[in-house]
Simulated scan of single mutants.
Amino acid sequence: MIEAPALSAETEGEPRVTATPAALALIEEIRRDHPQILFHQSGGCCDGSSPMCYPADDFIVGDRDVKLGEIGGVPVYISESQFEAWRHTQLIIDVVQGRGGMFSLDNGRERRFLTRSRLFSGGEACAIPVIRRGDEAKAG
Results as ranks from 00 to 15, higher is better:
Arg116His: 13
Pro51Lys: 04
Gly140Ser: 15
Gly48Val: 03
Arg64Asp: 07
His40Pro: 00
Glu84Tyr: 01
Gly140Phe: 15
Asp47Gln: 08
Gly100Met: 05
Thr20Ser: 11
Arg118Trp: 08
Pro51Met: 05
Glu70Asp: 08
Ala56Thr: 06
Tyr77Met: 06
Thr115Arg: 09
Ala127Gln: 14
Val96Thr: 04
Tyr77Lys: 06
Pro51Glu: 02
Ile30Leu: 09
Gly123Pro: 09
Arg118Ser: 07
Gly13His: 05
Ile2Thr: 08
Arg87Val: 10
Arg112Tyr: 04
Arg32Trp: 06
Thr89Leu: 11
Arg64Gln: 00
Arg109Leu: 15
Arg112Met: 10
Gly69Pro: 04
Ser104Leu: 07
Ile60Tyr: 12
Ile78Phe: 08
Glu28Gly: 09
Ser42Trp: 06
Ser50Gln: 12
Gly101Pro: 05
Ser79Pro: 02
Arg132Ala: 11
Arg16Met: 07
Ser8Asp: 11
Val130Cys: 04
His40Ser: 15
Glu124Ser: 15
Pro5Thr: 14
Ala22Ile: 01
Leu68Ala: 06
Ala139His: 11
Glu70Thr: 08
Pro129Gly: 00
Leu105Trp: 01
Leu7Phe: 14
Ala25Pro: 01
Val96His: 00
Arg116Ala: 12
Gly108Asp: 02
Gly43Tyr: 02
Arg32Met: 09
Ile71Met: 01
Leu68Asp: 02
Ile2Tyr: 07
Phe39Ser: 02
Met102Asn: 13
Glu124Thr: 15
Ile2Asp: 07
Arg112Asn: 05
Gly44Met: 02
Ser8Leu: 10
Thr11Glu: 14
Met1Val: 14
Glu10Asp: 14
Arg16Asp: 00
Gly134Pro: 05
His40Tyr: 12
Glu124Ala: 15
Glu84Met: 12
Arg133Pro: 03
Ala6Met: 02
Ile27Phe: 03
Asp106Phe: 01
Ile71Arg: 00
Met102Glu: 15
Asp57Ala: 15
Gly122Met: 06
Ala4Arg: 09
Phe120His: 10
Asp63Cys: 10
Val76Trp: 04
